Computed example of a mutant assay.
Amino acid sequence: MNNTAVRASIVIAAVYGYFLIFAQFSFIELLRSGGARPIEEKFALGAMALAGIAGGFFAAWRGVNPAMLRIALGLAAFSAVLAPFARTMPGALGIAMATGGSLGVATVTLAALVPGWCGIVWIGIGTGLGYAVCNVPAVFMQSPSGQAWIGSGLALLGLVAVPPVTARPRAETGKVFPLWGTLALFTALVWLDSAAFFIIQHEQDLKSGTWGADLLWRNAAVHLAFALVAGIWFGKGGARLLPALAWAILAIAALAVNAESTRGLAGWLYPAGVSLYSAALVAWPGWFSGTTDTRGTAWRAAWLFAVAGWFGSANGIGMAET
């Protein structure tokens, strides 16, 4: 087994897991438990997004390397450890900016370096593991503080696992969508996902029928299985069709969750669609953007994660709240 590829998949899982369980979930709950008003919550999340965008473009401008990724993951771990003790303003604002900035650097650096570490199937493995870990009952049912500390542990695990390799193969790249089309496609996917998940998690009937405690192991398994499917599908040349399929699955799930008779189906479809597009989101800069060098890949990743990741996620959650 390729040791570098295994380490790469662990880093992918760690970054995704940190983003999901802490930045997108625990941090919001910590803000609310600290008495944050809606306007303060939006301000903190907006600051996180702006810091994430700035961090991503800084990484692309500065030039990525494994040391940069390790530093970013170290800062991410530190901010998550402190978050339960800084759940009110202005401390929470500092945590938000540190979290966003470190994630911005980490995601762009990872996307640019990972083609030199592993084949595309490992992208699916890492993405699936990240989602699966977050859905393990002992993680998902933790208190917000516990989830923050789990997120910190994931960041530290990623820091240790970062491979030292920086070279990348040139033969595995190809252009599937132009940049503007990619940004539009993935922004729509992230927007829909963020809005749907926020609503599901804050409406008890929807949550119990799709993300209840007795369904978490199933959701973890579905996430892992479909991320693996995505990785294998990419390897067989399915990069153009897969994001469209993910959109269709998510749209059907978003409709099905509203009716009690089809809510169970939505519980299967939603994690499947999320894992399909998430693996594609990680893979696109390095394999399907048409770039042939690490620097070019970093710039593509910075644009993708700024628009689709941070902008799409923030507006999806904001739309759901409104």
Rank of each mutant, 00 (worst) to 15 (best):
Asp214Cys: 07
Asp214Pro: 03
Asp214Phe: 03
Asp214Thr: 14
Asp214Gly: 04
Asp214Arg: 02
Leu215Gln: 15
Leu215Val: 03
Leu215Cys: 02
Leu215Glu: 11
Leu216Tyr: 10
Leu216Ser: 07
Leu216Lys: 06
Leu216Ile: 00
Leu216Phe: 09
Trp217His: 14
Trp217Tyr: 15
Trp217Met: 13
Trp217Lys: 04
Trp217Arg: 05
Arg218Trp: 07
Arg218Asp: 03
Arg218Cys: 05
Arg218Pro: 03
Arg218Tyr: 09
Arg218Leu: 12
Asn219Leu: 08
Asn219Ser: 13
Asn219Val: 15
Asn219Gln: 13
Asn219Pro: 02
Asn219Arg: 12
Asn219Tyr: 00
Asn219Glu: 03
Ala220Val: 01
Ala220Pro: 04
Ala220His: 08
Ala221Arg: 00
Ala221Gly: 07
Ala221Asp: 09
Ala221Met: 07
Ala221Ile: 07
Val222Gln: 07
Val222His: 06
Val222Pro: 01
Val222Arg: 02
His223Gln: 12
His223Tyr: 12
His223Ser: 15
Leu224Pro: 05
Leu224Ala: 12
Leu224Ser: 05
Leu224Trp: 08
Leu224Gln: 06
Leu224Glu: 10
Leu224Gly: 08
Ala225Glu: 02
Ala225Leu: 11
Ala225Tyr: 05
Ala225Met: 00
Ala225Pro: 04
Phe226Gln: 05
Phe226Cys: 03
Ala227Asp: 06
Ala227Tyr: 10
Ala227Trp: 06
Ala227Cys: 06
Leu228Asp: 01
Leu228Ala: 10
Leu228Thr: 05
Leu228Pro: 01
Leu228Asn: 04
Leu228Met: 11
Val229Trp: 04
Val229Arg: 00
Val229Pro: 03
Ala230Cys: 02
Ala230Gln: 01
Ala230Val: 05
Gly231Asn: 05
Gly231Ile: 07
Gly231Ser: 06
Gly231Asp: 09
Ile232His: 13
Ile232Gly: 10
Ile232Ser: 10
Ile232Asp: 10
Ile232Trp: 14
Ile232Phe: 12
Ile232Thr: 13
Trp233Asn: 07
Trp233Glu: 05
Trp233Ile: 07
Phe234Thr: 01
Phe234Leu: 06
Phe234Val: 05
Phe234Ile: 04
Phe234Ala: 00
Phe234Gly: 01
Gly235Ala: 07
Gly235Lys: 10
Gly235Thr: 12
Gly235Ser: 07
Gly235Met: 12
Lys236Gln: 13
Lys236Phe: 14
Gly237Ala: 01
Gly238Val: 12
Gly238Lys: 04
Gly238Glu: 04
Gly238Met: 05
Gly238Arg: 03
Ala239Gln: 11
Ala239Ile: 08
Ala239Lys: 00
Ala239Arg: 03
Arg240Asp: 11
Arg240Leu: 14
Arg240Pro: 09
Arg240Val: 10
Arg240Thr: 15
Arg240Tyr: 13
Leu241Ser: 14
Leu241Phe: 14
Leu241Ala: 15
Leu241Asn: 12
Leu241Gly: 15
Leu241Thr: 15
Leu241Tyr: 13
Leu241Met: 13
Leu241Glu: 13
Leu242Pro: 01
Leu242Cys: 02
Pro243Ile: 08
Pro243Gly: 02
Pro243Ala: 04
Pro243Glu: 05
Pro243Met: 10
Ala244Asp: 09
Ala244Met: 13
Ala244Pro: 00
Ala244Arg: 12
Ala244Asn: 09
Ala244Trp: 13
Ala244Cys: 09
Ala244Thr: 09
